[in-house]
């Protein structure tokens, strides 16, 4: 079985338990992994970076303290932004859909998008928006779950209802699928790093904590959906990786 993540806010007590597993957000990647990816971009101090799907802001804090960037946080979940607002003053936070943000075209030097696209039924809309807000030559750091066995995707996995009961395997793509979307939106993929081992470790932690992956899923989903999420994990063999991409000079999008 394999771990998958969900965008459903669990009950407060469970949320605290989940956050304690990864020292912050429930995601496979560590803050060091994010820092290493940002370091490779060679951004100047004060460069403008949009953290799309910033959640509780673990990366924002690191980006400000370690790289001295001008960071903007965006998330659809007002509750998470509210928690983040309480923790730090002066943060530039926006509640908006990833496919429709209020930022000016070509206004960002970089966009960070961690474990977001796999939760969206419209990843292409989000990538189009990222391409719009990035300046030509700007960078995208995209870390996410990806499907290692796309042949395991059955009819039962397609056309999942969008909305609050979304788990990342509903919309996770395989690596060529991600690269194809990036290319379509004018990005050049600079590198891809596989970190599936981190996803496996997170899954192991969930098993030790909750007793089984199915038990973990049942803390977030109705039993039938929990069983489906587990089965999908077995078939699709989710992996985890980080793409670095650069927006082409000729793709202005306004």
């Amino acid at each position: 079985m394999h771990a998958t993540l969900t965008n459903i806010p669990p009950a407060p007590g469970k949320r605290a338990a989940l956050r304690s597993l990864t020292g912050g957000p429930l995601r496979p990647g560590t803050i060091e992994l994010t820092a290493a990816a940002i370091r490779r971009l060679g951004l100047q101090r004060g460069a403008k970076l949009l953290d799309m799907g910033c959640g509780y802001g673990a990366s924002i804090n690191m980006l400000q303290s370690e790289f001295d960037l001008n960071v903007f946080g965006l998330d659809i979940d007002l509750g998470k932004l509210g928690d983040l607002r309480k923790e730090g003053s002066g943060l530039a936070l926006v509640q908006a859909d990833a496919g429709r943000t209020p930022f000016l075209s070509r206004s960002m030097d970089a966009v960070l998008c961690e474990c977001v696209l796999s939760l969206l039924g419209c990843a292409d809309d989000a990538l189009r928006e990222i391409a719009r807000v990035l300046r030509p030559g700007g960078f995208l750091v995209l870390s996410d779950i990806y499907v290692r066995s796309p042949e395991g995707r059955g009819a039962e996995d397609r056309n999942q209802p969008s909305g609050p009961l979304t788990c990342c395997l509903d919309y996770a793509m395989d690596r060529p699928g991600v690269e194809s979307l990036l290319s379509r939106r004018g990005f050049e993929v600079l590198s891809f790093e596989d970190h599936t081992q981190l996803l496996t470790r997170l899954a192991a932690k969930l098993v030790f904590t909750f007793g089984s992956l199915e038990a973990y899923w049942e803390t977030l989903l109705p039993p039938a959906r929990a069983a489906k999420a587990c089965a999908a994990g077995e078939r699709l063999k989710p992996g985890y990786g980080v793409f670095l991409a650069r927006k082409g000079e000729r793709h202005g999008h306004g």
């Binding site: 079985m1 394999h2 496996t200 899954a203 192991a204 098993v207 030790f208 007793g211 089984s212 992956l213 063999k237």
Partner: peptide, 13 residues
């Protein structure tokens, strides 16, 4: 037989 077994399966991919 429970948690450790499931974790072993995960780590063995």
């Amino acid at each position: 037989r429970g948690r450790m077994f499931e974790v072993e399966q995960l780590l063995e991919d």
